[in-house]
Design a protein around this nucleic acid. Structure first.
Ligand SMILES: [Mn+2]
Ligand SMILES: [Mn+2]
Ligand SMILES: [Zn+2]
Ligand SMILES: [Zn+2]
Lengths: 150, 150
DNA sequence: AGCTAAATGAATATCATTTTCAATAGGAGG
DNA sequence: CCTCCTATTGAAAATGATATTCATTTAGCT
């Protein structure tokens, strides 16, 4: 289980930054890990609020997600309309996404060659890449099949 | 000059949809074409408002940008924070972007091989791609040089 | 235990974008 | 050219995600 490892690294991160170790922050990490691979903050806020014991307010959840991004355990992966979908990168290898615009399904993929070509492009432009995001929007096989039914 | 061509195709599009041909819509196209390759709507609204004769209200500008997206002359190319950067695709070939997180500079590029690999990935997942966006965030050569000065 | 700065929650603000609604203007038909 | 119907427009208000404010609480040091 690497969740504990991430939490202890996060603890070190907080200490080093002079931030405090609070129960709320670690409970939010647990909830995010429980929630699933991809989430929207509002969705998470509602999900947490619907549980017996509310562990943190909306403000704290937003603040903690920001902190976890700074730390590097969370990244923004899809931006569509006014929605931002995050993911808990927690030891997961880097990857990109196919997003079904019909049903919202998210498929993950990784193509080494695409990554290499990106580095090549950056070199050609003397550009120092920090991060990137490749979003492919389209129709998943399930939705495709369904639309042929009628 | 293909701007005129685009406008006449847009006119056909409007007619076909049962929409009306209004002066405002075409003046907004002219302004967008004048403005530059990439724009944010609020920026455009302010820019248009600062000109002698105001050609359209904020609402109409938003509505027209949406219409032009539907028509296919404009696409969302970068989403960073709460900012959306659009571009007038007006006959321009498809491309992706490098975005300097320091100065905001946008560099365009196109790599045929990346496009092909994307199609391959989609096939592998029986996914029908409609459109995609590859954003590479980093530091441009100019900002890099500047940060080495001190 | 006592002190101080950081964290928290609730309410409020912000910012981009959308919607509402009353007034106006295309454009089809006469 | 006139009339009527409907789409469009502008201004203001609403929305929705996220950020900020501020009074209160808490972590962590002495
Ligand atoms: Mn993912
Ligand atoms: Mn571009
Ligand atoms: Zn689907
Ligand atoms: Zn730069």
């Amino acid at each position: 289980m690497q969740l504990e490892e991430i939490k202890s690294k996060f603890e070190r991160f907080l200490r080093q930054k002079g931030y405090k170790i609070t129960r709320g922050r670690f409970e939010i990490i647990d909830k995010i890990a429980d929630y699933g691979p991809h989430f929207e903050i509002e969705e998470l806020v509602r999900w947490i609020a619907n549980q017996n014991r509310s562990i943190a307010s909306r403000s704290t959840i937003y603040r903690t997600v920001r902190l976890l991004q700074e730390f590097g355990a969370i990244r923004e992966v899809i931006k569509l309309g006014n929605r931002t979908i995050y993911e808990f990168t927690a030891g997961k290898p880097h990857h990109e996404h196919l997003i079904c615009v019909q049903c919202g399904k998210i498929i993950e993929f990784y193509k080494e060659e695409i990554e290499e070509l990106q580095d090549k492009v950056c070199e050609e432009h003397q550009f120092t890449p920090l991060n990137h995001r490749l979003e492919i929007f389209g129709i998943c096989s399930h939705c495709k099949a369904k639309s042929h039914e009628d």
